[in-house]
């Protein structure tokens, strides 16, 4: 089943879906494995697996640290692919790759995407690859039936959003605010206006990410967005309280 279908089906049963994120190899693949088990058991609907990169330009301090330490600990792209294959085989929910373009470029764009497809990955989020630079990526993604998730930002005009949506599949990742990952988002009237703009520009499901960390945040998004993205919050939780806290945290979000 393709990503869009899978999400539509899940959405029929739930008011809002949860997408979580983790950095592969941080603090270790063993902990990643335990965290994912708890996420899935507590109803997470889709998981973003970030392949670490040495220059994570769009990320904030917590995820930068996770990227750095994963690499310093010896995490290789090949290990990430093997781990992702294991997860995708074990669980029904869709898994996505999130990473920066150089990881794909250096691996060989076509080889990377073919491999991702083979191991059961459903799509990719590449924040530093706008469609203007991604012609080859977009056509290969379509060839392999992988969803090239497109990103909307509060600075995107409605016209720009329509262009982006035309290149995307699966869902749209709406960055909730300016800035990098990790700090709090203020869900005010201008946020509502922004989400309304996103809605007008596409009929694809909308995921909202950046700064979502609590049940209240998820509640605010319910009815406005289709997917709430929990990123830094679980990484911080694992760091401060250990992986066993992830299950109860996820269960308490909806």
């Amino acid at each position: 089943m393709q990503l869009a279908e899978q999400l539509r089906e899940a959405r029929r049963k739930k008011e809002i879906l949860l997408m979580t994120h983790l950095v592969l190899g941080y603090p270790s693949f063993a902990v990643n494995r335990e965290v994912i088990r708890q996420m899935v058991e507590n109803g997470v609907d889709v998981i973003e697996l970030q392949i670490p990169f040495s220059e994570p330009m769009a990320d904030g301090p917590m995820i930068i640290k996770a990227n750095q330490e994963a690499i310093a600990g010896g995490t290789k792209v090949a290990d990430c692919l093997a781990f992702a294959a294991e997860m995708a085989a074990q669980y029904e929910i869709p898994f996505l790759f999130m990473t920066y373009y150089n990881i794909l470029f250096k691996y060989g764009l076509e080889d990377f995407l073919r491999k991702a497809k083979e191991i059961g990955i459903k799509g990719c989020i590449i924040p530093d690859l706008p469609p203007e630079e991604g012609e080859e990526y977009l056509s290969l993604a379509s060839e392999f039936a992988l969803a090239p998730i497109q990103i909307f930002a509060p600075t995107s005009t409605e016209e720009r959003m329509r262009t982006l949506a035309g290149h995307g599949a699966g869902f749209i990742y709406c960055v909730a605010r300016r800035g990098v990952t990790g700090s709090k988002t203020d869900f005010n009237a201008s946020f509502d206006a922004y989400l309304a703009r996103c809605r007008r520009a596409t009929s694809m499901p909308l995921a909202v990410g950046f700064g979502i960390s609590s049940r209240e945040d998820v509640q605010i998004l319910t009815g406005k967005a289709d997917i709430a993205v929990i990123g830094t919050a679980t990484i911080r939780l694992v760091e401060e309280k250990g992986p066993e806290e992830v299950g109860p945290f996820i269960a308490g979000l909806r």
């Binding site: 769009a58 373009y101 924040p127 690859l129 706008p130 930002a153 509060p154 600075t155 720009r160 300016r178």
Partner: peptide
């Protein structure tokens, strides 16, 4: 060369 930039900077 090129411009491999995140969407949030597109307008900028």
């Amino acid at each position: 060369g090129g411009a491999y930039i995140p969407e949030v900077l597109y307008e900028t």
